[in-house]
Nucleic acid binder design. Structure first.
Length: 260
DNA sequence: ATGGCATGACAATCATGA
């Protein structure tokens, strides 16, 4: 039975719940990492997701951020070792949720946006990335099969940006951010999307403005990084742009990786 | 052209996103 791991920044789970339920029904992914749920825990749609066959683990807050991991109840055992936020980075913002499912460690992250290079939020982003990298070093010693899935808010390479010359040095595509991404690869993690031949202009986010999606003006900022032991069993990784075509879409598309 | 669009909190605009 193959395992499918997906990540999707839904930009408000309240608004996007119908899209999510349709998408879960169509793809039946085993594990789904969600970002920007923008819901306090008392508002999380546990019952709707349970009716769809999914167990929910979630860590949210009012208005901003919020992460969740959905587990297909028939496919995987109950999660253990639930970790909310980085233990080495004090933070009011709910941006990280890690769970262990069988021998798989799943880390769901909503990385800081950074707003603008040089801003306070940019410095916060870089510090958050440094803490994430430090914390992962320890996690990796205990979990040979680990996936780091989420909205990284980093386009790692020029081919991940529709106009790399215009974006060079801007937030999401500045050298310090790309260096932090390489720091994650230096831990031994592999970008599951790049394990396979992919179409030109593959992106996961498009601005709501200026018909950016239709004009293919996007960035690939949502990723699923995996350890070598997981990469060895990875049979595919795709970006599903279909939900982005719908009415009232999230500005992000889901990414799905499949494992034998 | 620092706009454009979307979401949430809040009750007219404003913070934030990427």
């Amino acid at each position: 039975m193959p395992t499918t791991l997906a990540t999707w920044n839904v930009n408000s789970l309240k608004v996007r719940l119908p899209h999510l339920l349709d998408w879960l029904g169509a793809h039946r992914p085993t594990i789904v990492c969600l970002q920007e749920t923008k819901l306090t825990d008392d508002k999380f749609p546990v019952a709707d997701l349970e009716a769809a066959g999914y167990r929910s683990v979630y860590a949210g807050q009012k208005t901003y951020n919020g992460v969740a991991v959905l587990l297909h109840a028939d496919s995987v055992t109950a999660p253990t070792e639930v970790q909310i936020n980085l233990p080495n980075f004090a933070d009011e913002q709910k941006r990280l949720l890690a769970v262990t499912v069988g021998d798989l460690r799943v880390v769901c992250g909503y990385f800081p946006n950074g707003q603008a290079v040089g801003s306070e939020k940019y410095e916060y982003k870089l510090r958050w990335l440094e803490s994430l990298t430090d914390w992962l070093r320890g996690e990796l010693t205990r979990h040979p099969k680990l996936a780091l899935a989420g909205d990284y808010n980093i386009a790692p390479e020029p081919r991940d940006v529709h106009d790399p010359a215009a974006w060079e040095g801007q937030v999401l595509f500045s050298e310090p951010e790309r260096a932090a991404f390489r720091g994650l690869l230096d831990l031994g993690l592999k970008d599951s999307f790049r394990l396979f031949e992919q179409p030109e202009r593959s992106y996961t986010w498009w601005d709501y403005r200026n018909l950016a999606f239709r004009r293919k003006m996007g960035l690939r900022i949502d990723h699923i990084l995996v350890t070598p032991a997981l990469a060895a069993t990875c049979t595919g990784c795709i970006i599903d742009v279909e939900p982005r075509r719908r009415e009232q879409p999230s500005d992000h598309a889901p990414v799905l990786a499949t494992f034998a």
